[in-house]
Simulated scan of single mutants.
Amino acid sequence: MKRNIGVIISWLSIVLNIVLFAIKLWVGLLYNSVALIADAWHTLTDSVSSFAVLIGIKISDKPADEEHPFGHGRAELVSTIFVGFLLALVGVNFTYESFIKLRDHQESQYGMWAIIVTVISLVVKEIMAQYSIIFGKKINSKSLVADGWHHRSDAFSSLIILVGLFLGKYFWWMDGVLGLIVSALIFYTTYSILKEAFSLFLGEKIDDDLKESILQIGKYNFEYPLEAHHFLLHQYGNHAELTFHIYLPGDMSLNEASKVAMDYQKLIRDEHNIGVTIHIDSLEK
């Protein structure tokens, strides 16, 4: 059910972004504004990224199979990285366009339609950002959260452009500078999205709160000082696999040691809903 919410939000995002793109592009061409046109294409990339998120969610929901024993969860990371690189391309293009406009001393005169469309875009994009980020966190979808920040970057760029619309008549360079600011926002969003996605791909250390919880479970449910150590956590989208070591007395029977490990694994799975594999080390050295 939760994943279905992600699909619905993605489809809604695609439709709304295409409508906003068409309106913003029309206004940008009407006033010959590189900033408004850049903002329009930024909005269109939201549709493409939402479609990528949609594909990522669909693939990540596929069950594990022989070739992918840990499932397909990392498909969402792939779609997240795609969103990041798409944003980077948009930023590069409009940085170039803005420099050209400043170099040639081109100015733009804005009218009422530019203000109306920009206000509508700002409000709609922030609402979309809120829903994507909130529900993305609820269903543990990194790509949906990334898409939400993509929406928010578009809302920020619309806000900046809105301020510039009121100042444009006083400064000829306003449109070119706004284009550069929008590009900078796009690059910052790109950096944030790719940093998190690549970090997950490379592997991150176990969260301190999760580690402490596991240690407490071992402390209060077993008579032996298990001293859990050497934690390794592997993220597969909405599925995680945890491995770590425990100490048990060297004279303990194999059956007893296996029972302790299996009981510990079950307690952790029930508490945190993650896959667990425990390696047993002997206290005798």
Rank of each mutant, 00 (worst) to 15 (best):
G136P: 05
D270E: 15
G148C: 08
T277M: 07
L185K: 04
S13I: 07
M112K: 07
W172H: 05
I274N: 02
V182F: 09
K195Y: 13
T243I: 14
G6A: 06
F244H: 04
I23V: 11
K259W: 10
Q106V: 15
G275P: 00
F51T: 07
I160H: 04
I37S: 12
G237R: 00
Y170W: 09
K285N: 07
F198A: 10
L87E: 03
L232F: 07
N93L: 03
A261G: 13
Q216C: 09
F51P: 01
D147Q: 03
K62W: 14
K259R: 15
I59A: 12
E67Q: 11
D154F: 11
A75F: 09
K138W: 07
L226A: 10
E67P: 04
V48P: 06
I127A: 08
Y31L: 01
A64S: 13
K2A: 03
K138Q: 12
H230V: 06
I274F: 00
V92S: 06
D207H: 09
S253F: 15
L25F: 15
G237P: 04
S141C: 03
I57H: 13
F166I: 04
D208M: 01
R152V: 00
Y131N: 04
G84D: 08
G91W: 00
A257R: 10
F222Y: 10
A88S: 06
I120S: 03
L185M: 12
V83A: 14
I134L: 06
F51S: 06
F156D: 03
N32P: 03
I274Y: 00
D281V: 04
V163T: 10
V124P: 00
D270Q: 15
P63I: 12
S132R: 04
Y131A: 11
L102T: 10
F201W: 05
K285P: 08
D175Y: 12
H279E: 01
S13V: 02
I139H: 07
G168T: 02
H239W: 10
Y264T: 06
K24N: 10
Q130D: 11
Y110I: 12
I268P: 03
I81P: 00
M128T: 07
W113V: 02
I8N: 14
N93P: 01
